[in-house]
């Protein structure tokens, strides 16, 4: 191996080792709790699920309004669909506020 290649290879290896060990070098001594990966608890998971449901319902409402305005949905279809969607969005919003 040429000297130049050897030096470059060694520098590359050192750089990689530093990068990999950096989290341990930056925080050498940590309590087990501080070294825990973020994990949402049951309440947070429920909030997320409700937020997804709320966004889904609101997006569906927006889409329905737009489709109605563009004539894609008849007045009759619009009336039968909008009620359940509003209820769904309202339920999700209320549950999120609780």
């Amino acid at each position: 191996m040429t000297t130049f290649g050897l030096v470059l290879g060694a520098l590359l290896a050192i750089g990689c080792v530093v990068a990999v060990s950096r989290p341990f070098l930056r925080e050498p001594a940590l309590a087990a709790d501080a070294d825990r990966l973020y994990e949402p608890d049951a309440a947070e998971r429920r909030r997320l699920s409700l937020a997804e449901e709320r966004d889904r319902a609101l997006s569906a409402l927006k889409e329905l309004e737009f489709d109605h305005r563009t004539g894609k949905i008849s007045d009759e279809d619009y009336r039968t669909t909008i009620g359940p969607l509003r209820r769904q969005a309202g339920d999700a919003l209320r549950a999120l506020e609780r």
Binding site: L8, L12, P23, D35, L37, E39
Partner: peptide, 22 residues
């Protein structure tokens, strides 16, 4: 669920990209 080890693994993946680039 070990945070520092997870970050270390992420860094290894990024460093591997550097090695592949070389």
């Amino acid at each position: 669920r070990r945070r520092r080890l997870a970050v270390s693994a992420q860094n290894a993946l990024i460093a591997a990209f550097g090695a592949a680039a070389v």
